[in-house]
Design a protein around this nucleic acid. Structure first.
Length: 850
RNA sequence: GCCGGUGUGGCGGAAUGGUAGACGCAGGGGAUUCAAAAUCCCCCGACCCUAGGUCGUAAGAGUUCGAGUCUCUUCACCGGCACCA
């Protein structure tokens, strides 16, 4: 009898699939199409277990759909622009392009042994000029439709390296290389007008039926629709009125100050003329641009000396403060502070000794001195003691609406709907990205490059020995002729955010070699992505930008109306984690991290093999190079085979949760697959007799088909695998005859095939299956085989299980009740009395309340 | 700080509001073997007075005949926060 040798089997069947061309997607109007897409990887150079898990999930879906008669598109590409390539060039010389393409070649080589059902003929990298040239064409079309514009925006500025930093390059407010205090500085940058579509992007979330609720909620909160009141505070001096926006106009009588952003025009004017203000504003600009940094920074303010009149009580004057927590990007960049009902305002007022006047109190409570802001839910009814509109007792929501209505009726304010979502700044002052295809001409202004001149290609002769953007100091590339008037002009040296690259790659896969961004017939046929799979970390930005881009591509004629919402179903998978083995260096107290290969596990404890020292086990940590806890998929494939890696990453945890990679688990998987092989090989040699156990096995087989199919349809891969273990155990122990067992074993091979395609092909051919299991039709459940004659009903007494009875499945409620009341445990519990209540859930449970 | 999520045996986890711990790992016992590996069989939440019972799904409360599942509060951890991808 032959043995299970993964290496031979896997090569053999991969070659067979390639020869048959089973994964090459072609338009076929006679079949329903199915487009499976996993988020494409950044070419770091090594695949990791997270990739294996992500692509295996997609592969299971793709192979399953192929078996159920679908024409499947399952492509792969590379999200190839981005900072790591430039960092590598800075650290060790070389060119980002060479580094990237070498990494792609390496990773492709590591992925192919996994036996994924990918149509490699559609592969592309976003740094291919053929791809980013089409992206430039899209940009020009979007510019033409008014979806792109320029405005000022703040960036992280490193004053020593004289360069813009990414958020991750700002560590504790300092530049990662120079260590200098980072400042926020304004630059003119390119923006996509995503805010134009905020309402549509929000409303359409309701139609995303097959997206996780949590992702939809996160997106809705991110877009952040709010209704509020916009109005002005008149100044007591001659200056322009200050326009504010508030979502709590009902608290206007509690206003104790007006706050403006350090970037507000009034603040800028004062900055220019007043050294004290200039110093304060400069202080406010310290630190990075992230919302987290702004929120966590100490709240600071400066009284400008400007006074404004309260709109409802002109005798009341409020001071205008510059406050570091007010964002110029949101609303009007100015607010009024109501410390009684906003914790941030409360802290600010306490710090600077400003009034704290409550507007409402809890229903039934009396006014008292506040020790913190009172902020009930807007849906809660409160009693207004200083309201100016609506009922005394009303919800905050009604209070807000009444206030807006009154302000509009009296003509001093307007109800306004605003979104938290800001326009998408796409400019990056970096080399390794898609060049923004415009030219700056002294006479013509900003002029898009002519489409026939695309792609505007990145120059190869650049160096990274000085900080900053090499495009900026590359005269022969930068200097060009104006596409409009032909006079000498300068190219835009900013490149695009890499999120742009990943916002339309799904559409490009439908016609990856076309000399237009998409081709209508292909886009019409293949779009939308039926199942998109990727990490939860992309829940907001990538997915929102992609949804925006699909709409923009529709507006510019590159996608049909039906593809405005590009991903029909979304699944977000968890990370692959691995224990960290840590000891401490006795000399300096610093941790030392040990590779899993350097560790021996005994009785749940870890020991360093070389020294025998016991190491601390930190479980379930994200795999990270610096912690030496990365498991290389190639090692797993070479020791156990791809099928083991594929099965294991799906077997132990629900796919949306993190999975812990353990060597023991991988070995156990390899053993199990070898066992399946052995069982099936034995069965293949049986003769075709039949026994009285055949029917029992047949029933179990159909139950397995039912359970596993359901598992695949609902992303319950771990549950499907548990059922396959159980079915394998049953098949092994069954005393059914050879014919029945061969049939059951073939179905076992088929049910396993999306996860372990190579092993399944081998078993399929061994057991006399026709053709490839990959292209065989999925087995169909015979419902009649699922019907059970009798069911076991647990009997609860007062909610606790005390006994059980076995009854025919179709027994009536009344008969069950009668049987239950005769049950020994029930009789004993009733002690001659009557049950207070008797609950019979047919087929499930009985509860007797005594 | 704000938004979202997760928390169940020694471990990974299962469980349409209906028998908590399926399935797997680790562990224990046995069979086979000259011996081992491999394989096969059985046991395996905690506690107790072991007949049987009590407790038990991060902690605390609530809704319900019945809560791991629903609601509220708290704690811990994870993801995102617009220039990491």
């Amino acid at each position: 009898m032959s043995r299970y040798t993964a290496a031979d089997i896997e090569q053999k069947w991969q070659a067979a699939w390639e020869q048959a061309g089973v994964f090459t997607a072609k338009r076929d109007e006679t079949k329903p199409k199915y487009y499976v897409l996993e988020m494409f990887p950044y070419p770091s150079g090594r695949i990791h277990m997270g990739h294996v898990r992500n692509y295996t999930m997609g592969d299971v879906v793709a192979r399953f759909k192929m078996s159920t008669g679908h024409n499947v598109l399952h492509p792969m590409g590379w999200d190839a622009f981005g900072m790591p390539a430039e960092n590598a060039a800075m650290a060790s010389g070389g060119h980002p392009k060479d580094w990237t393409y070498k990494n792609i070649a390496d990773m492709r080589g590591q992925m192919k042994p996994l036996g994924l059902s990918i149509d490699w003929s559609r592969e592309f990298a976003t740094c291919d000029p053929e791809y980013y040239g089409q992206q430039q064409a899209l940009f020009i079309d979007m510019l033409d439709k008014g979806l792109v514009y320029r405005k000022n925006a703040v960036v992280n500025w490193d004053p020593v390296d004289m360069t813009v930093l990414a958020n991750e390059q700002v560590i504790d407010g300092k530049g990662w290389r120079s260590g200098a205090d980072v400042e926020r500085r304004e630059l003119t940058q390119w923006f996509f007008k995503i805010s134009d579509m905020a309402g549509d992007l929000l409303d359409s979330i309701d139609n995303l039926d097959d997206w996780p609720a949590k992702v939809k909620l996160m997106q809705a909160n991110w877009i952040g629709k709010s209704r509020g009141l916009q109005f002005s505070f008149e100044r007591t001096d001659a200056g322009d009125a200050i326009e504010v926006y508030t979502t709590r106009p009902d608290t206007l009588m509690g206003a104790s100050f007006v706050g403006i952003s350090p970037d507000h025009p009034i603040a800028k004017e004062l900055e220019a003329n007043n050294p004290e203000t200039a110093a304060f504003v400069a202080d406010c600009r310290k630190g990075g641009t992230t919302e987290e940094a702004l929120e966590k920074a100490e709240k600071k303010g400066l009284d400008t000396g400007i006074k404004v009149k309260h709109p409802l009580d002109p005798s009341k004057e409020l001071s205008v403060w510059i406050a570091n927590f007010i964002l110029m990007d949101y609303g009007t960049g100015a607010i009024f502070g109501c410390p009684a009902h906003d914790q941030r305002d409360f802290d600010f007022a306490t710090k600077y000794g400003l009034d704290i006047t409550p507007i409402f109190v809890a229903d039934g409570a009396e006014e008292e001195t506040l020790t913190e802001a009172y902020t009930p839910l807007k849906s809660e009814k409160v009693r207004y003691i200083r309201g100016f509109a609506g009922q005394e007792l009303q919800t905050g929501e009604d209070g807000v609406n009444s206030a807006i209505d009154k302000a509009e009726a009296e003509g001093w304010g307007t109800g306004v709907t605003k979104f938290r979502l800001r326009d998408w700044g796409l400019s990056r002052q970096r080399y390794w990205g898609c060049p923004i295809p415009v030219v700056h001409c002294e006479d013509c202004g900003v002029v898009p490059e002519k489409k026939e001149n695309l792609p505007v290609q990145l120059p190869d002769d650049v160096t990274f020995d000085v900080p900053g953007n090499p495009l900026d100091r590359h005269p022969t590339w930068r200097d060009c002729a104006c596409p409009s008037c032909g006079k000498p002009a300068r190219r835009e040296t900013d490149t695009m955010d890499t999120f742009v690259d990943s916002s339309w790659y799904y559409a490009r896969f439908t016609s990856p070699r076309a000399d237009t961004p998409t081709v209508q017939a292909d886009a019409d046929y293949w779009m939308n992505v039926d199942q998109y799979i990727g990490g939860i970390e992309h829940a907001i930005l990538h997915l929102l930008y992609s949804r925006f881009f699909a709409r923009a591509m529709n507006v510019t004629g590159h996608l049909p109306d039906s593809a405005r919402e590009p991903f029909n179903a979304l699944f977000t998978q968890g990370m692959v984690t691995h224990a960290i083995y840590q000891t401490t260096n006795p000399e300096n107290g610093r941790p030392i991290y040990h590779y899993p290969e350097a560790i021996e596990l005994r009785d749940g404890k870890a020991f360093v093999i070389a020294t025998g020292e016991e190491a601390q086990i930190i479980p379930s940590a994200k795999m990270s190079k610096s912690k030496n806890n990365v498991v290389d998929p190639l090692n797993i494939i070479s020791s156990f085979g791809a099928d083991t890696a594929r099965w294991f990453v799906l077997s132990d945890s629900p796919p949306e949760r993190d999975v812990e990679w353990t060597a023991a688990g991988a070995e156990a998987t390899a053993k199990h697959l070898a066992r399946v092989f052995r069982i099936c090989a034995d069965i293949a040699e049986m003769d075709d007799a039949s026994t009285e156990s055949d029917l029992e096995l047949l029933k179990a087989t159909h139950k397995a088909i039912f359970d596993v199919t359901q598992g695949f349809e609902s992303f319950g891969f771990n549950a499907a695998i548990a059922k396959l273990y159980a079915f394998t155990n049953l098949l092994q122990k069954s005393s059914a005859g050879g014919k029945a067992k061969k049939e059951a074993a073939r179905i076992l091979a088929q049910l396993m095939s999306p996860m372990t395609p190579h092993l399944s092909e081998e078993l399929w051919s061994l057991l006399g299956g026709e053709g490839l299991v990959t292209t065989a039709a999925w087995p169909v459940v015979d419902e009649a085989m699922l019907v059970e004659d009798t069911v076991t009903l647990p009997i609860q007494i007062n909610g606790k299980r005390r006994a059980e009875i076995s009854v025919p499945a179709d027994m009536s409620k009344e008969e069950v009740e009668k049987l239950v009341l005769e049950n020994e445990a029930v009789v004993k519990a009733l002690d001659g009395g009557q049950p207070k209540k008797l609950i019979v859930v047919p087929g499930r449970i009985v509860n007797v309340v005594v």
